[in-house]
Write a protein that binds this DNA or RNA. Structure first.
Lengths: 260, 260
DNA sequence: CGCAAGTGTTGCGCTTGACGAAACAGAGTT
DNA sequence: AACTCTGTTTCGTCAAGCGCAACACTTGCG
């Protein structure tokens, strides 16, 4: 029974709520914006944008920055986020292991799940080398060009695989762009139990990922370590792969995998 | 220029947006709820509640649980939260220091600010001993019964203090329940430059906190270390106090405190 | 197994909430 | 000082959002 989202997606949702939430998404993307900028993004009158912002502000989902009339996301989001993250069992179970892996490798550790034809990043822990790293949490990332994506796809059978994939856009000269190449790669991932992506999503980015399994052995998430290619070179990848596979196995055990 | 929130708070905001955001707050509080429950909470017709939920679902701010027609907060909140936390200057500046303090003490480190008569927890880093720690981020926590709360109150003058406090509920036999006791305690906090709370919010919970100051020397946040009382006994509290005071001073320096 | 109760979902007509236009206030620039 | 641009407020209009009624589905009980 999924008609609620379908109705909303089809434009039959509540227009002013849709607009207000679009403001939140604009602010998430731009950092901060003024009323006129928001009205331009939404295609509404600035008095409309102003009233919508006022309502969001009264719920503390946006707040004004020091500058006159400029807005950014507010701390009210944190209360909602706290409620959300605390309930994601997977993230909760994985957090201490993610932290250990980040400490061991010094790089950025992520947990991602398959969602709507992409990898949705649920958690991120940065290692000591990874100051100011890009925040992936909440983002939908292409499957075919990332180690997390390959791991998540490797848990699918052929029918589900084709359903999960749309086009295979090219991001760098090393991006996999044909289905047959991707199938071969996924066979390798299944064989070796992990995935590696070097310069496939963006040049200079290396990531390794391993599957997180549930009690039945299904791939329910992927755990990755990523960093710049100059730090994660060939000489270190083997070691990081081993650490990642072990950490993901540990998370899997906590979810009931391998228990008999 | 704060008229936006005032307008919203006065009920002149956008009613349907106000309702939709109230749904998010209900779900944050209850965990999950059905359409009829939400319509009861909001005092609207269930078809109204259903349409509002549909719009929230289309933006992935709510999602259906496995049960028929029951909803909870969705992962779309995480994207907004990621954007929020990364941009809170204080959290950003404090994060590496929080991490170090968590590593040094092995316990849970929090950053909190004063907000609406309570301590609002903005950030949390768990140390190696702190498995399965409670997630405080986004929550409003009582001031009089926590070390963070005492630190935040210690930065107020008498008028602001009374304005900030409501009743002083009893949580344990050690909770401070009279204003004069609290004033004495806040004098001690000002004198010694830190606060300690043992078994005051809940039995078995010990926390120490130190003030984070801005360039003017005002207390703008509080940084705390907390853990179970069996690990944070009298023998360790002095050491952890010293580490916390030093870490909070480091954050204060980053915010411009003490620079001449 | 059939029925009742309760919940979720949909369509429709009405009304009122949300909208854009116009105007004003303030800040920055020339 | 004048102009430009932004944020903010007020007001009349109308279409979006509302409640109502009905239907579909699930669950529990006799």
């Amino acid at each position: 029974m999924r008609n609620a989202a379908e109705a909303g997606a089809g434009g039959a949702g509540v227009q002013s709520v849709d607009r207000a939430l679009s403001i939140l998404e604009v602010l998430a993307r731009t950092g901060e914006a003024g009323v006129t900028e928001i009205s331009g993004e939404l295609g509404v009158h600035k008095s409309t944008a102003f009233r919508l912002m006022a309502t969001l502000e009264s719920h503390r989902l946006v707040e004004q920055t020091g500058d006159r009339g400029r807005y950014r996301l507010g701390v009210g989001i944190l209360r909602l986020a706290g409620a959300t993250t605390a309930r994601l069992d997977l993230v909760q179970e994985a957090r201490p292991i993610s932290r250990q892996l980040a400490a061991d490798t010094g790089e950025t550790v992520n947990i991602a799940v398959l969602s709507d034809g992409s990898a949705l990043y649920l958690d991120q822990v940065a290692g000591s080398s990874a100051l100011q790293s890009h925040n992936w949490v909440g983002q939908h990332i292409p499957l075919h060009a990332t180690s997390n994506g390959k791991v998540l796809l490797s848990g699918l059978d052929d029918d589900d695989l084709e359903a999960a994939l749309g086009a295979l856009p090219t991001y760098t000269s090393r991006t996999i762009t044909t289905l047959s190449q991707l199938r071969d790669e996924l066979d390798r991932v299944r064989d070796q139990g992990y995935a590696v992506a070097v310069d496939e999503l963006e040049v200079g980015l290396t990531a390794v990922a391993a599957p997180v399994r549930n009690a039945h052995g299904d791939v329910v998430a992927s755990m990755s370590v990523s960093g710049p290619s100059f730090r994660l070179g060939d000489d270190r990848v083997d070691e990081v792969v081993a650490q990642t596979v072990e950490a993901a196995a540990e998370v899997s055990h906590r979810l009931g995998w391998g228990h008999r």
